[in-house]
Simulated assay, not measured.
Amino acid sequence: MSRTPVLRPAVLLSCSITLLALTACGSEDERPPAAPTGVTAQSSSATTVHVMWQGVKAAKDGEAVEAYEVLQAGKKVKEVDADRTMVDIAGLKPSADYVFTVRTRDAAGNHSTPSRKVTVTTPAAPTEDAKPPTRPGQLRGKANGSRAADLSWTASTDDQRVVSYDIYQGNAKIHTVDGKETRAVLTGLRPDTHYVITVRARDAADNLSPASAPLRLTTDGKGGGGGEEPEDFRASVRKNTKDKAYYLDLSWTPPRTDALKAEYQVYLDEVFVTTLAADDDAPEGRARHTVYLGTEEGKTYDVRIRPRLSDGSWGAFSTEGTVTTGS
């Protein structure tokens, strides 16, 4: 039989006096942070996968992001500090399928929902391979604005096959691409910063080639543009007089990603709704697109977009626009 609680004077104290009252008044942070975006997974060898993602700059409630957790089939297998957005998952089985997600944890211990799932298959294990690939040749590149750089090199050779190329900034690995690729776009760089880049080839047995000759480049200053995010993003709503429906008109300046096709994802209220894909190359000037919203009036949307980069991953989000139908 339940008992009716009796209020005592101590329970009526101000929220500023007791920890119990502070918790009851809702000052404790229980709002989860946003999930990482742009998650990719690339086999580095027969037993290693390199997972990368776009970081969360800050939680919406102001709580600091503390760490990222990498999950394999829903189970946490790796954790890194908030200033890292990539990690190697080692000790895997050759010729096996793996599914990875990444989630954010804030300083209050709240977890985001897991990111989208990415699937990767490790290559077959080689038979006693102790010979590393040859060093990549003719590493070339240039800054692509203030926050990105384009790289290319000549392929390495291996007695089995090259599984991946690891890209280094000094001694730190900052990117990985498939062994069939001989070019990459580095994003998330700092404006007006000098970088020393090298590339190393890796085979299925985890043998690393010698490093390529170093490439030295400097990104543009803060006014240089050309990063990975769409710039000058604008969103507005109009009503079609014929079908009485609302349409979302979007326009932006495309980033210089060197992607083969112009492709963007559109998010409304943090939810992915559609992919915009053009038949031609990314336009030189301003890009525009329209999205159908429906007939409901007085509905507010937070809108943002992000581009696909030339390495297949999704770039940074544009600034966020807010629109209301019928306003």
Rank of each mutant, 00 (worst) to 15 (best):
L248N: 05
L20Q: 13
L20N: 14
D106A: 12
G315H: 07
A211E: 09
Y292T: 04
M86N: 15
A10T: 05
G285R: 10
Y247P: 01
L151K: 03
V163Y: 01
D249G: 08
S209A: 13
K76D: 01
E63M: 15
G298D: 10
A262H: 13
G109H: 08
D150P: 00
A21M: 10
T218Q: 15
A58P: 00
A148Q: 07
P123K: 03
E128D: 15
A143K: 05
V87C: 12
P254E: 07
S44Y: 03
V80M: 13
G221S: 14
G170I: 11
T295A: 14
T198L: 11
L19K: 12
K239F: 03
E284Q: 13
P136I: 04
V162N: 04
A262V: 00
K57R: 15
K299A: 07
P114H: 03
E128T: 12
Q160E: 15
G26P: 06
R200C: 09
G38M: 05
A58D: 07
W153M: 05
P283Q: 08
S212I: 02
D166P: 00
A235R: 10
P133N: 07
R84Q: 15
P126Q: 10
E228V: 01
F233D: 06
Y292A: 15
R183S: 15
W53E: 06
R202L: 10
V56K: 09
G74D: 11
L260P: 00
V266A: 06
V323F: 09
Q169T: 11
D88F: 07
K261E: 11
Y264I: 05
P214I: 09
D269Q: 08
